[in-house]
Structure formats: structure tokens, C-alpha cells
């Protein structure tokens, strides 16, 4: 399978890249690691006239912590996130999520910024980004803005990014004391994409759940926070029974999508099962 012909640019700076996006508008697509975009271009589901390859812009990859937050450059690969010592200590949920994306070769090339911008409804990161309350930093012709993860994922394959904006980094909070987090996923047996993926961030105090944030991917057209589960968890001492009762609300208020592998009803069921698992694992890690 060969992509349709396109004009190719490899800008050396973010400024140059934004200039190209301004010039070419909707005809242009940004290429980062290419592991979401190239497959759909090969299937000709996407036929951009212009490719702006940001892979050679320096300063867009790497991970650094500054007290309250960890900043991850948009071009940081899943593999680098999986292995980063700072993230493992300060925000292990993101490293745990990166480790179960695709396979080793895919993780060697795919980037967190590219994955977020593509907004595949079965991508893994969105669950973690929502549960963590991450921020997506984007730069465009009018300067830099910070988009909360909760406002970033608009619809299937659609984000709050403007056509002329580029993600430069993503920021996640440092895990607070008494807080545990976990990502649990039912991977599609062939593609490895999340049929259902649930990220839980749970804060425990005196044996009771003080706060909970649950991000769910794969179930609906876009990732979401399972707020009904979160409400049901607060004040509970978390065990099999209480977690299962709360997790039963995992697909409440959303329209579970069905496909050849899993019906909407099965996805909703899986959402409850994996929410319970993620909550209990997160609670056991809360120290």
C-alpha cells in the first residue's frame, strides 16, 4: 500500500513549521513518529497534500520534572516514557500506560504528542491523561496556550487543536502522597489497541477513598472521565464489593461503540470489569 502523493517539508524550527501550517491550512498534516498517520495514509483514508515532518525539530523531546509537574516533550517516544526514571518515580501511571502501547517497534517510533493529536478512540494515553488532569501545551501563530486534557479530546479523531497549532509538550502532575494510580487494559488480540482501557488515580486517607479520577478509553467515540464511578468511590473503604459496585457505573452516560470484535454491550461490561481492577490496584499502591 502506497500513500497518495504529497509535498514534503521538514522544518528545523517550530516557527518554521507553524509558517508552513499557516500557508497550507487544511491541506497540511503534521508528521511526528508517523505511527498513526502513515497507516491511514497507506489505506488512503487520509490523503494530505502537504506533510510537515516535525521530527527534525530539536527541543521537542525529553522529560523534565519541576517540583509539582513533569513535562514531556511532544516528540518523546512511548519507549522513552516507559523507561524514564523520573516518570517512574513521579508519575508512574504514564510510564505504565506507555509500556502497553503496541509493541516494541511501535514504541520505538510512536510519540506521545502524535498519539494525543491523532485522538484515536482506542489509544491508551487519553485514559491516563484524563485521570491525571494533564495539560497539553500547544503553540500557534498567536503564541502558546495550555489546554486541559478534559477539553482536549473533542470527538473521535478530533481535538481542540487548531489546524495551525502544534503540541510542544504535555504536563502531568507529580503523584501526591497517599495517592496510587494504575492502568488496566483489555488489548485487541491482533492490533494491541485498547478495546477498553481504564486509568485510575485514587487518593486514600485513613483507609477510605478521599478522591478518585477515572479515565476510560476504547469504549465510546472519545475518552471520558467516569464521573459516576468517581462519586460512588468517595468515602468508601475499597474492597472487591465496594469497588465492583462503583465500577458498575463505568459506562454511564456514554454511548458504547460496537465493532467486529466487541459489541457496545460487551465494551460496557469490560469497562466495569477493568475499572474495578484499576481502582483496586491503584488503591493498593496508594501510600
Amino acid at each position: 500500500m502506497i500513500p497518495a502523493a504529497f509535498e514534503y517539508f521538514s522544518p528545523q524550527s517550530v516557527k518554521e513549521a507553524i509558517g508552513l501550517l499557516e500557508k497550507h491550512g487544511d491541506d497540511a498534516k503534521i508528521l511526528a513518529g508517523g505511527h498513526s498517520l502513515l497507516p491511514i495514509m497507506k489505506l488512503r483514508l487520509a490523503q494530505p497534500k502537504v506533510i510537515v515532518d516535525i521530527g527534525r525539530i530539536s527541543g521537542l523531546s525529553g522529560i523534565k520534572a519541576d517540583g509539582q509537574k513533569v513535562a514531556i516533550g511532544a516528540l518523546t517516544t512511548h519507549d522513552a516514557i516507559e523507561r524514564d526514571a523520573v516518570l517512574k518515580e513521579k508519575c508512574p501511571l504514564l510510564a505504565e500506560t506507555a509500556a502497553v502501547i503496541g509493541d516494541m517497534q511501535v514504541r520505538n517510533r510512536g510519540t506521545i504528542g502524535g498519539s494525543a493529536a491523532h485522538a484515536d478512540p482506542a489509544a491508551d494515553y487519553p485514559a491516563a491523561l484524563l485521570a491525571l488532569g494533564a495539560e497539553i501545551v500547544a503553540i500557534g501563530p498567536k503564541g502558546t496556550r495550555t489546554i486541559p486534557a478534559g477539553e482536549f479530546f473533542v470527538e473521535m479523531l478530533t481535538t481542540a487543536l487548531k489546524p495551525t497549532e502544534i503540541i510542544t509538550e504535555l504536563r502531568v502532575p507529580v503523584l501526591a502522597r497517599g495517592t496510587g494510580a494504575a492502568y488496566q487494559k483489555h488489548p485487541h488480540p491482533a492490533s494491541g489497541y485498547a478495546v477498553v482501557g481504564v486509568a485510575a488515580v485514587v487518593t486514600m486517607s485513613g483507609g477510605k477513598c478521599q478522591s478518585a479520577a477515572i479515565g476510560v478509553t476504547g469504549v465510546a467515540g472519545k475518552p471520558y472521565r467516569a464521573t459516576a464511578v468517581e462519586k460512588a468511590l468517595i468515602g468508601q473503604s475499597l474492597d472487591e464489593t465496594t469497588a465492583a459496585k462503583a465500577a458498575a457505573h463505568a459506562a454511564e452516560g456514554v454511548d458504547p461503540q460496537g465493532d467486529l470484535y466487541a459489541s457496545g454491550q460487551f465494551r460496557a461490561h469490560l469497562a466495569s470489569v477493568y475499572t474495578k481492577r484499576a481502582v483496586l490496584l491503584a488503591a493498593s499502591r496508594a501510600k
Binding site: S10, G34, H35, L38, D53, M104, Q105, V106, N108
Partner: peptide
């Protein structure tokens, strides 16, 4: 699968120009 700068990648999902 090939190695690019020592790392395994799937060469059906890269453009030749990306390997410059």
C-alpha cells in the same frame, strides 16, 4: 523490522525521507 540507529522499527511504517 530493521534497526535504525540501533533501535528496532517497522520499515513499512516509515517514509524513506524520515530516515535521512
Amino acid at each position: 523490522t530493521i534497526l535504525i540507529n540501533g533501535r528496532a522499527v517497522k520499515s513499512c511504517t516509515l517514509l524513506a525521507v524520515q530516515a535521512e
